[in-house]
Design a protein around this nucleic acid. Structure first.
Lengths: 252, 252
DNA sequence: AAGTTTGCAGTTGTATACAATTTGCCCAGG
DNA sequence: CCTGGGCAAATTGTATACAACTGCAAACTT
């Protein structure tokens, strides 16, 4: 069903209400940072892409002040590399950095899901299953970009159930970074089996099997990382920032 | 020896060479962020202190642009609360948030020290013992502020030995936050016994006892948190930013 | 006299202007 | 033909100017 694909924007995060997933809190540069992050997470902005300030200004219809704010925050989150006097680029993590990120996720998310499995409500499980449906739809429709984002988002939903907001914040920083690596290193074919593993995680949580969920999470992340392969560097640079869809281009 | 106390600035981080501990990378706002962070870590800037932009501008002799950059990064690190249209304040973590921070540190630092104990070199141990000496000196001289900072810094030295730079970054974010809580909730007397626990950690690492070091780290952090007590809110606000020592006040 | 309103001082949010640095290109020299 | 110096265009770094908002206080209304 290609007809439904145009609605993907509306389906961005129906599980998580209005308040998005990010730490975006009240600043005017939030929409910019959010758009760039989404672009990265959906693979529309490949690693190494140059993020010129002037260009972003034109796209979002704001001054460089806000653009720089957004870039600085993304830099702090590790999604963007800020080279002094040179400009901002989409981060290009090495395989070693990716391994570190996955190791950190294994450590943190295993702990989170173990706790989450203990005190999650029926409502939480419902949210998770709703999100699983979204993933399944995206996979069935072959919407690779949307699926890529949803697969990461799912882990944030779990992290939000856990009782440690700080660890949840760390997951928020880590997931986009690994998603970026996925787009860099994954063989073009199979990010799809992950949905099945996600379903197993929810089943274990629904049963209240904390230890089992933790073990499953560890396996899930390990296999996720194991699928990565080094690839040709392929400096693309063939990107216009029109990859950032805007409702009204010249407006503010 | 009070005579040596004036040299404390030079002894800031002799173990860690020039490159400081923070993620500070090349930006001109680094000195500002660093000074504020140090002020917070040494308890000179109590929780809730208002950080007026104009005031910081005068102190550091720069424009609001750089001050805002610094504040935004500190906000991202959780050390500063940015209330829109109201200004920046030193974060005032609740006891719950502090508990979350300590829980995160337990999870991450036990993992880090376990790995660090496995592959640390004789040089690493030397660095750690050198840092222990600094702590002991500060404790003996009764320099509470310096000791407070060093106690946190010690954990960063360990994190730097570990093989996961991302987890080390997380520790860099967490340690100042818990140090801030320490200044908020600690009974005025005893942050000193921590030095002994630190010495035990180094001994275990020197022996290569990874599991033992991990267990000790868990105990150490748990007891650290256990010492905290809720106290009167005591909105001080009696702070001038002259708590940030500057070489030349009105110059630039 | 109590509550509401309105104006003002101070502070933050955003945009723009200017300075500094980098990069690519052109041309002179070998 | 290749190498090296230097100028020029473009881009980032920093400062300043202006707009918008908040909080307080004094004055006005009922």
């Amino acid at each position: 069903m290609k007809s439904a694909s145009k609605t993907q924007k509306a389906a961005a995060s129906p599980v998580l209400e209005r308040g998005r997933l990010g730490v975006w809190a009240g600043l005017a540069s939030d929409p910019i940072a959010e758009a760039v992050q989404e672009g990265i997470c959906e693979g529309r902005l490949p690693a190494g892409t140059r993020l010129g300030e002037e260009e972003l200004c034109r796209i979002f219809g704001v001054s460089r002040t806000l653009v720089r704010q957004a870039l600085q925050r993304l830099s702090f989150a590790g999604l963007v590399t800020l080279r002094p006097n040179r400009g901002a680029f989409v981060a290009a993590p090495t395989l070693e950095e990716t391994a570190s990120a996955y190791a950190a996720r294994r450590l943190i998310e295993t702990d989170i899901i173990e706790e989450a499995a203990r005190h999650c409500t029926a409502n939480d499980i419902r949210s998770l299953r709703a999100h699983l449906r979204l993933q399944a739809e995206a996979a069935a429709d072959g919407q690779r970009s949307v699926l890529l984002r949803l697969l990461g988002e799912f882990h944030l939903v779990i992290a939000a159930i856990g009782d440690n907001p700080i660890l949840a914040d760390f997951v928020r920083q880590l997931v986009p970074r690994t998603t970026l690596s996925l787009a860099l290193f994954e063989r073009r074919d199979l990010p799809f089996c992950a949905v099945d593993e996600h379903r197993l995680l929810v089943d274990l949580m629904a049963k209240g099997d904390a230890k089992g969920a933790a073990k499953m999470m560890r396996r899930h992340l390990t296999s996720d990382f194991g699928r990565l392969r080094v690839r040709a560097p392929e400096e693309p640079t063939v990107n216009l920032a029109a990859a950032l869809r805007l409702p009204a281009p010249g407006r503010r």
